[in-house]
């Protein structure tokens, strides 16, 4: 059972990839370097404020804009355990699953959770518990095929497994 637990950091609609990781930092793809600049243009102190396991919560269309995989990489390597939003932009959605950053679509949770709430997420059940408010929310489960990618630990491992089955 995969349980994620941390403090919620709340953002609004249309958080774009330029805010998640500005292009001026894209001359590297070193995850640790990217992590330092995660969300910098929205909150310059973000990286120094968060703790491993913390959870980002945002409203509609999270991750819109560029296809840069540096965006979910920056979030993941900053120590964020999971992103919950009303909806995700499609390239960000694919990228997050491919690199193994858990994401959950739950408009109900995204609306109810406030900054600073302590949240626990059960990924397999799609269950989100707000311990501060004593509430529970659910997200729609991933399609089976995506669950396979997630349980393989990302797309590269999934492809490796597929290729070894072929040979």
């Amino acid at each position: 059972m995969t349980l994620l637990h941390g403090k919620a950091w709340k953002f609004g609609d249309d958080v774009d990839t330029d805010v998640i990781i500005p292009a001026r930092y894209l001359s590297t793809s070193d995850p640790e370097e990217l992590a330092k600049h995660c969300m910098e243009d929205a909150d310059p102190q973000f990286f120094s404020k968060i703790h491993p396991g913390d959870i980002m919560v945002a409203r509609k269309n999270f991750g819109c804009g560029s296809s840069r995989e540096h965006a979910p990489l920056a979030i993941k390597s900053a120590g964020i355990s999971c992103v919950i939003a009303d909806s995700f932009a499609r390239i960000f959605y694919r990228n997050a699953i491919n690199i193994g950053l858990p994401i959950l679509e739950s408009p109900e949770a995204a609306e109810a959770i406030s900054e600073g709430d302590m949240v626990t997420v059960d990924l397999e059940k799609g269950l989100i518990k707000n311990e501060t408010k004593g509430e529970k929310y659910y997200s729609a489960p991933f399609p089976e095929f995506m669950q396979e990618i997630i349980s393989a630990g990302g797309l590269i491992n999934y492809v490796k497994e597929r290729l070894s089955e072929k040979s």
């Binding site: 296809s67 390239i91 694919r94 990228n95 590269i156």
Partner: peptide, 9 residues
């Protein structure tokens, strides 16, 4: 558009 890992696969 896709990401880098999708491109790799």
């Amino acid at each position: 558009g896709i990401g880098s890992t999708d491109m790799a696969a």
